[in-house]
Design a protein around this nucleic acid. Structure first.
Lengths: 211, 211, 211, 211
DNA sequence: AAATAAGCGAGACGGTACGTCTTGTCTTCTT
DNA sequence: AAGAAGACAAGACGTACCGTCTCGCTTATTT
């Protein structure tokens, strides 16, 4: 039900020989790009309700059938768009300085969630996950879990470096670091200043006697 | 755009005998209850996508016009339903023992958000708030801000009692206490055990030298 | 499955009292007329393939749902249009002069089938009846059988007047009179001149010694 | 626009020399047969609406492109199918006995039109000819005119043998003989018994003093 | 033997229309 | 005046076919 595996234009050669009998050019990469951009643009311009399969098809110059051939719903398209143009921004920095990395990462994450264009897509998809359990599964495995790993990476490195006690609960610590950010973005809608993110980082460091 | 002020039966005499001639009694309380229950039931039975104005009207035995007369959209109905049957559950305990109150409240909140029926409505409305800025305003002022006050109440009482330094940032502290709960419910979908809520409370207490 | 009985705007009064509980104005006569005209116009302008439910709705300024509420398919709409504006043209003349009536009626029928606008609708519907057995039933009972009665009327009057032997097979005689007309229109597409229709009438009269 | 001239497997040799440079085996006769059978089967099994280019291609195990290479539309395929397996049945008998030949031929024609499988195809194509003038031209020249010649053949032989007056209008006489059959099949849908066909033959013979 | 070129099965593509669903407005009659 | 009923215009949904296209395979000359 998720987006079909990227066909990569027939994978000519692909090692072991005959892979398919019919059309060898597979899906059109041009159509794919046009669709993802159209969906993104519509979300930014008109909001989530303004993103419709018909609208995407029209703006991308693509037939509706092409959408349904490769994606199961508009949220699936938005997820592809998100994965394509956004997630790389969220790689946590690694300078070796825990305090600095932590602070920088939380600022970066806060900006992404609350201010960036892909962040708007992200929030819409988190919303959709509340409303549709099937989509939630997909979204969690394709987006949230990888993101979770990135969120945890800074702490994991600190643990590996022996800066943290070996029995620390990394999951719970991560939740305490990023949870308040998501809360402000998704629930209270208060702005997140650097004082706030630095406060989170500081609380963490003091909690573990690192400052 | 918000739900019309509750008319409360026109106040005509209310006891003094004849109640209405044409229809002088304002909105029908029976219809209102039937609508709220129908919306609630539909959400639980068929999920958010299964809640439609038509479906609510049919199940409540009410005309669509009646819905539109009193509510602006299905989310508005769900918000009324939520306010009616749920929020009282969330009054924080007040035993005078900060540690115990804190722990109890976080457990209670976690259960509400993640396990209860009204919690499901709440999550759906938080989702809707991501997708519709107009609704977000309404929802924040009618539900989230009161809830925010309740969340803060335990800390506020501790502050008033002089247990916390006068310059503590109550807002930020609250975010750190409840943010991780919302995060687990809305984002990571991990179960919230008592170890987790107690850990949050404990971190708070130690942060302020209260344990 | 056929077009719903004409509601005639609520049938106000209607004798026996309460007829319906909900909407009291019933279907919109304005919409009905607009639809029939749009369908007719489209058939004449663009041919049968140019008549689509979407096209009718757009041209009539009507929602598709309204079409589907009252008609089952575009052929059902065309049938209503045909019944409304055409069939009256085909009442056979009755001057008391069998030869003259017969000749006049056959000319009139030939013109209707082959030359007139409603005739074009009629041919399209006969075609549709070949392709769709369900429609064929409807069309036969609502259009073809009444037409059959009209076709037979001239002969029936002659029979009643004692001009024909009592044991004549009216059905078969009618088929011999009108069958060749339908054949030319539907199959051979040859023009039907008055010589042809008069020839048919003449053959009939001579067959029964009436000339 | 009509079905491409039958290539008959490249017409290798074909007299005057080199005909084509590329594909040297011409069209696949196997594919052609599979297509015609698939179209026929679909019509019988699912009715005219169940005959689609996609359905034919799938059932015949043929690519859509192959259909469009050799035929212009599904009706063109059905016409080929009809021409291939049916028209030979309709050769009028020639025993030298006009009355007997006439009677036999009308019975045979009635059975073909109303009862046989190819008759179902024939009716569908006559229907299509009402709806599509371009197809009508093709169909008339490839099917109806040859059939018309066969219909006329019995009378033509009688004329050549001097049994009919030299100035008889063969066209009109033919219309009177076969028109009622088509009428019953296409319009009234009444069964055609032998009494009916014999009645037509008899009327003809008496009309010309041959009985 | 190699090169060539058309027919072929496969199937993605841009489209059009389908028939259904929901929305929010409206009109009418009842209470 | 509020409510029940439900018709209405609007428009998105997901599906089915249309006719075109590109692809890589097969096949039979032609060189």
């Amino acid at each position: 039900m998720t987006s079909v595996a990227r066909a990569e234009a027939g994978g000519t050669g692909e090692g072991s020989g005959r892979r398919h009998h019919g059309n060898r050019h597979g899906r059109s990469e041009g159509a794919r790009q046009a669709v993802l951009e159209a969906a993104d643009d519509l979300l930014v311009e008109k909001g989530f309700a303004g993103v419709t399969m018909e609208g995407i098809a029209a703006r991308a110059g693509v037939a509706k059938q092409t959408l349904y051939r490769w994606w199961s719903a508009k949220t699936d398209i938005l997820m592809d768009a998100l994965l394509q143009d956004a997630v790389e921004d969220l790689t946590p920095p690694d300078t070796g300085d825990l305090a600095r990395d932590l602070s920088a990462y939380l600022r970066q994450l806060a900006w992404f969630l609350g201010e960036s264009d892909p962040g708007a897509v992200f929030r819409a998809l988190i919303a959709q996950a509340q409303l549709d359990p099937g989509f939630a599964r997909d979204f969690r495995s394709r987006c949230l879990e990888p993101q979770r790993l990135r969120d945890r990476a800074v702490l994991q490195r600190a643990l590996d470096a022996g800066l943290l006690p070996a029995d620390v609960d990394i999951e719970a610590e991560t939740d305490q670091l990023v949870g308040p950010l998501y809360y402000r973005v998704l629930v209270s809608d208060e702005p997140i200043g650097e004082a706030f993110t630095d406060g989170l980082a500081d609380a963490f460091l003091r909690r573990h006697g690192l400052v």
